[in-house]
């Protein structure tokens, strides 16, 4: 069973977070939405594993 990694896995979390936000700087809501959607697709392809993807989608949809 493939699982979503829920343990910290990113080295330099603050740097990563800054890079993520920087991509959205000065962008309109529409542009930002498009960036986010593209990012999701790029990362999903990187993961590839359908089971992990489904679990990640379910996790994200939890409120």
């Amino acid at each position: 069973m493939s699982e979503v990694n829920t343990k910290p896995n990113i080295e330099g979390p603050d740097d990563f977070y800054e890079t993520l936000l920087a991509a959205h700087e000065g962008k309109t809501k529409e542009e930002s939405d498009a960036i986010n959607a593209r990012l999701v697709l790029i990362l999903a392809n990187q993961i590839g594993d359908r089971e992990v993807l489904s679990k990640a989608i379910a996790m994200a949809a939890e409120t």
């Binding site: 939405d33 498009a34 959607a37 999701v40 697709l41 790029i42 392809n45």
Partner: peptide
């Protein structure tokens, strides 16, 4: 619509998005 256009946008440049 946003996702659909994201797929099309990526497909222009990257092979990985074409199957979508």
């Amino acid at each position: 619509h946003i996702f659909r256009n994201a797929v099309l946008n990526l497909a222009a440049k990257h092979e990985f998005a074409r199957p979508l």
